[in-house]
Amino acid sequence: LGCCDTKNRKTPYRLENPEIIASETVFSVSEVEALYELYKKISSAVVDDGLINKEEFQLALFKTNKKESIFAERVFNLFDTKNNGVLDFGEFARALSIFHPDAPLNEKIDFSFRLYDLKQQGYIGREEVKHMMLATLAESGMNLSDEVIENIIDKTFEEADTKHDGRIDKDEWESLVLQHPSLLKNMTLQYLRDITTTFPSFVFYSQVEDT
């Protein structure tokens, strides 16, 4: 079972102990196992290697691998905490835990901040906001003039950038989202509450006894 035994390299990817994942997330052991059913589906869509690559992630999000999205890319990279270009089940489950309705608000705030801090500079800059706005508009086919876009960004920074340095730092982001909770709407997935009923087949593979 050694991690570095080269003979075991071709062994199919094994589920990380669900009890450990459950202890580190808001999920119960059964929920972790049900989530694994979703993970198996996504991770076998292109290459059945037990890992989710970027293409499979985009395919699951958009139902097409032709679509490119800076957001999907950023979300994938944030999920990929080991930074090796693929998501193992532990990374997938731990990241999705942040999206659970019962996850702590500060985790959602932190994740959303890192999401929008595209350049990973520790703050959200004006250029990043414009870049993300243009991407969203292009995605939805909505057309706004540059003047209107600049105006919206001006207003947003007027409100958010309370230190007036042209940047939205973590504290400013926190204040902004507490004023506008709807900005965190996409950080909560109601689906995660019903994960065991969505994927009931997990009971056939369960490695733990019911308590």
Binding site: L38, I42, A60, L61, F62, K63, S69, I70, F71, A72, E73, V75, L96, F99, L115, Y116, V129, M132, M133, A135, T136, L137, E139, S140, I152, I153, K155, T156, E159, L176, H180, S182, L183, K185, N186, L189, Q190, Y191, T198
Partner: peptide
């Protein structure tokens, strides 16, 4: 009170790429 205006992040947060509920849809 401030006038109600569209916040840039409100618009951005509607991006399809940020809607992870799609992962659960068949």
């Amino acid at each position: 009170t401030k006038p109600v205006t569209m916040n840039a992040f409100e618009l951005i947060s509607r991006s399809q790429g940020l809607n992870l509920s799609n992962l659960f849809e068949k």
